[in-house]
Amino acid sequence: MAENSEINKREDFGLAKAESESAPITEQVAGSFFKQLQGFWVTFITMFKKVNTVQYPFEKAPTAERFHGRHQLNRHPDGLEKCIGCELCAWACPADAIYVEGGTNTPEEQYSPGERYGKVYQINYLRCVFCGLCIEACPTRALTMSNEFELADSTREKLIFEKEDLLAPLRQGMLQPPHPMYPGSTDTTYYRGEVPGSHPSQETNSHA
C-alpha cells in the first residue's frame, strides 16, 4: 500500500495540488471576500514603504563588491603588462570566449617582464558567461574582473574587446610599454611586487 502511494506521488509530481491552488476563487462565501480584502491591503500598505526602483541609467547603484563584470588586464607598477600570453585563461574558458597569441619580448620591445608577452588578446563578450574561471586560471594575476557591467552595443565587432580595450589605464608612475625592465630587476622581482614604479632610465624606449 505504502509503496503504491509513493508511486502515485511521483507520477503526479504534485500537479494536482498546484492546479487547485491556482484556480480562480469562484465561491461567493463571506469568508472569501475577507480574503480578497486582505490581499488589497498588502498592496495598499506598500504604497507607503521606501521605493526600491533605481532610475537607471540616470542614477547608478554600485554592484556587489565581487560582482563579475568586464575583465581588466593589469599592469606592474612601472606600466609593464602582467600578461605573459600563456593562454591558460583561454584554455580554462568554458565558452571559448578568449583568444590569445603569445609573442617574444626583445630588448628593444619589452611589453612584460621576462621573455614572453601576450601579443594578441581578445575577449568576445558575446560569448563570455562571466563565470570567472579565466581569473582563477591566470598564473600572474594579470586578468581580473571589474564591476563594470554596461556591455551592450550595436555590432558584433564592438563586442570583441582587444588588448587595448582591456588593459588597465596607466596610473601615476606608469609608463606605456614597450620599455625596458626596471634597472637591476628580473622577472622574479616583478612577481614578488618589489618594483616600486617606473625609473627615469626606463623612459628611453618609451612611446609615451
Partner: peptide
C-alpha cells in the same frame, strides 16, 4: 615555434 601557440589551438 617559441611562444606561438598551445596544442589546443
Amino acid at each position: 615555434y617559441r611562444f606561438r601557440a598551445r596544442p589546443f589551438d
